[in-house]
């Protein structure tokens, strides 16, 4: 019997959630036994090569590339999991929500304290660049999400417990310490 296939991605996130996946320590060896990884930064597979069983996504959507990526995951994964605060509610990138996007662009490229060389106020507008969304969107506002694992990052045990439950079809173990929003 073939192993379940897992794909992962980091959209508008910091890769902290992926670090937390790795934080399951030696259980990662069991995980490799249990599942096969497809598109994921963990194995550096860039595009989907087959239909996956589980897609795990960290980060929300702050630009058009995030959206396209997310749509590809929805298309190629039977189950999608929002991993971490950014995927669930936009997280820290969403601190910009409520501030007009023009102001954000100015702050980033012209007026921010770390900007010193852009006196002509050139704004990035190459067609190859992702386009910036009006706000940072939680994933479930764009596609259907099946499960949510909160935390910043989600505790390694929460991720492990969730995967075990999914792969074995058993009820998820949720001890008090593993569900945290920070």
């Amino acid at each position: 019997m073939s192993k379940p296939v897992v794909a992962t991605a980091s959209l508008a996130g910091c890769f902290g959630c992926h670090m937390s996946i790795l934080d399951i320590d030696d259980r990662i060896l069991q995980l490799v036994e249990l599942v096969e990884f497809n598109k994921s930064p963990i194995d550096d597979i860039k595009t989907f090569t087959k239909m996956c069983d589980v897609g795990i996504i960290e980060g929300g959507c702050c630009n058009s590339e995030n959206v396209e990526n997310l749509l590809a995951f929805r298309k190629n994964c039977k189950i999608l999991i929002s991993l971490g605060e950014c995927a669930i509610m936009g997280g820290l990138p969403a601190l910009r929500n409520g501030i007009p996007v023009e102001e954000c662009i100015n702050e980033a490229y012209c007026d921010g304290p770390t900007v010193s060389l852009n006196k002509e106020r050139i704004l990035p507008n190459d067609d190859e660049l992702p386009m910036i969304l009006d706000k940072v969107y939680p994933l479930h506002e764009i596609v259907k999400i099946d499960y949510y694992l909160p935390g910043c990052p989600p505790r390694a045990d929460l991720i492990w417990n969730a995967l075990v439950a999914l792969l074995t079809g058993s009820k998820m173990d949720l001890p008090y310490e593993v569900v945290k929003f920070d």
Partner: peptide, 27 residues
């Protein structure tokens, strides 16, 4: 509101967050 728990000084001591934990609010 705008509750960015990861960036909040009160995280872990916040009663709203604590009720979120109590009721296992995943989203």
């Amino acid at each position: 509101g705008n509750h960015f728990c990861p960036a909040c000084e009160k995280s872990g001591n916040c009663e709203l967050q604590a009720l979120g934990y109590k009721y296992q609010m995943m989203v």
